[in-house]
Each structure stands twice: as C-alpha cells, then as structure tokens.
C-alpha cells in the first residue's frame, strides 16, 4: 500500500545541509499496524509526514497504492487527504471554536457529503465512541483522553484506508493511553484500517504487529 524507495530528506543549514532521512526503503502492506520508534530527532515524525503527504521528500520515490505521489497535482493530493488518509496528532489539534459534533463533521464538509448523510455518520461515530452526551461541548471542556477520542473519531469519519498517528498518547496518562491504543487495535482488526503510529512507548508498540526502529535517519535492521 505504501512504498518508499530510497527516500531522503534534508534541510539546508547555512552552506551545508542537515540530513533528516537517508535512503529509506520501506513497504507497508494493507491492514498492517506499524509502530515507528526511535529517539528524539531521529526523523520518525518527518517520515510520517512524508507518508501523509504533508511534506515532500528531497529525493526518492513514494508510491501510494502504486501511484507516484510526486506526479500528483494539488487536487489529487487533497483527494487523498479527504478520502484515504486520516491523521491523529499528539496535541489533538481540535478546532477550539467548534463543538465535538462540528469537529467530527468537518472532514465530511470538505468531501461535500450531503447534510443528512453527514448527520447519520457523525451520529454513528459518536455512538460508537460513547460520546453522544458530549457532542455539544467544546474541546476545552473535555479531558485530554476525551479530546484524543474526538481526534480519532474525526480521523476515521472520512473512512480512510490508513491512519497516521503522531505520538497519539504522548500527552495522556497511561490509563487513557490504554483506551486509545485498544481503540487503534480494534480499528485495525475490525475495520481493516492500516495504522502507522510514531511512539516512544514500548508498551504502545506491542499493540502493533510490526516495529520499525529508526536512528539517525536510517531504518535499523
């Protein structure tokens, strides 16, 4: 599903350059639950951003479902963001001015889904996450774990094929983290959603079925 071929990423620093990623070859198949691990600054977030089309690699090729990403125009990439890829962030990144309901609904607005269908889909997700009672609250009125639940709900509402999660439990304590990780496992097993998470936690990594260790921009064998 995701194929990275000789991917490199570097930033110009002064007269030289700062290499973040070097010659990454990686293939992730549909239905996998992959954990990317590594120390701070090892390039794991950059790798995730590249997979999520938020950043472009300096060199190498990236094929998403067999299609070359660098050949895509903005419209096509946006289509992928709307339909195939869901994001979950460490800082949740909910929109403060919108209620829980409206936050979850937002991706559907960008997909131009009719109002009635939006309603039923948001209602389904709220129901599934046991958040119906909280649907009219604003993010600031929720605990961190609940906010992240909303973040995940928002990520899956567009029925993506893959969820990219950047330290989804980084700001949560262990009980909340456990709930979130079980949810990811459930989504992976029941809904067949490919999940790629960046994490520091060995415990979290155990929920996945594959661990990729990254260090100084290289994948450790």
């Amino acid at each position: 599903m995701i194929q990275l071929q000789k991917i490199s990423k570097h930033y110009p620093v002064g007269f030289g350059k700062n290499d973040i990623l070097k010659d990454i070859d990686l293939t992730i198949n549909e239905g996998e639950f992959v954990s990317i691990m590594g120390p701070s600054g090892s390039g794991k977030s950059t790798l995730l951003h590249i997979m999520g089309l938020l950043e472009e690699p300096s060199e190498g090729q990236y094929l998403f479902e067999g299609e070359r990403v660098d050949k895509m125009n903005e419209k096509k990439r946006t289509q992928l963001h709307r339909g195939s890829i869901g994001f979950v962030f460490q800082a949740y990144h909910l929109i403060d001015e919108l209620t829980v309901y409206e936050n979850i609904e937002t991706p559907l607005l960008y997909k131009n889904i009719p109002s009635s269908e939006r309603k039923s889909r948001v209602a389904d997700v709220l129901d599934r996450f046991n958040m119906v009672a909280k649907k009219d609250l604003f993010p600031s009125q929720l605990s961190g774990g609940q906010q992240q639940l909303v973040g995940i709900a928002r990520a899956i509402i567009g029925e993506p094929r893959v969820i990219l999660a950047d330290e989804p439990t980084g700001n949560l304590h262990s009980d909340q983290a456990k709930i979130i990780m079980q949810l990811f496992k459930h989504l992976n097993e029941q809904d067949k959603i490919t999940i790629i998470q960046v994490t520091h936690s060995d415990v979290n990594a155990t929920y996945g079925n594959r661990v990729i260790q990254i260090r100084d921009g290289h994948i450790q064998p």
Partner: peptide, 16 residues
C-alpha cells in the same frame, strides 16, 4: 495556525 494546518490535513484546498 494550528487550525489552518489541521484543515489542510483534513483535505481543505487553499481556495477553500
């Protein structure tokens, strides 16, 4: 800015 970034990752076009 985080709202803007987020909306982009949710699939908002620049024009939107």
């Amino acid at each position: 800015s985080s709202e803007i970034g987020l909306r982009k990752s949710l699939g908002a076009m620049d024009s939107q």
